[in-house]
Amino acid sequence: MGRLSPFQKIYLFLIAGFILGPFLPLIIQSFAFRWAWPDLLPGTWWLEQREKSPIPLAWDYVLSPYSRIWEATLNTVLIGGIVTAICLAICLPAAKVLARDRFRGKSLLEFGLSLPLIVPETAIGIALLMMFIRLGLAGTYTGIIIAHLIPTIPYMIRMLTSVWQGLGREFEEQAMILGASRWQVLRLVTLPMLMPGVVAGALFSFLVSTNIFLLTFLLGQGKIVTLPTLLFSKISGGQIDATGAGIALIVTVPGIAMLLISERFLREEAFGQGFGN
């Protein structure tokens, strides 16, 4: 293993600062009551004013039902969960075919399944909204869930295909030769071997779904709020106050949780599979 050059060491520090640095003022902002320019720290902290204020301040507000944060969190998790389940169900058989079979038009099919990665969100979102308005799906959970399938499918297919590739036919055939029934093969051989990849794919598509803003924003019609759309409505004026900062931090929490568990399950190789090669 090569070592880092001095330049690379500095570079790693700079990138870490670029990525994490802005979170420090975000945290400070969420606790600020008065933070006048050009102070580097707030003049008055939120907690100092808490007892005096008749209205809920910053974190009191963020954690209260008025901010809709709990509603948004629940919606985000609910939609993400259902999208993941449906995505898994429809991608699992397709990924098996892609991993094991050779047939004409396969590369075209793979290309088509990657297409959602490069079709602009706005184009598909606005056109879908027109369609869903006619179908009565605009502003419904069903509409949002269906729309979320589009960006989650490509990643799920990639991850599941690589799992199926790792699980050769031999294992199942061995089990059958040894007298296992089809059901036993599925339960005792196929599923346990698929499990790590299924968990990874599910985590990732959950992550993608919870991060989607535009499709939810367009198809939710303001009736259904999720964490990204809630934050958007808070900062769409181009300003951010203490409550906005608090909401931004809450919106970050699921991502941090995913980060902590993903290291065990996510396969970095899944990102290395290219496009059109």
Binding site: L12, P22, Q29, F213, F232
Partner: peptide
Amino acid sequence: YKYIYKLPLMIPYTVGIALAVLM
């Protein structure tokens, strides 16, 4: 470090926008 650098991947663009406004 491998945890840290992936954080932006895991969170919505709107958080990035909030950070840009703040910075």
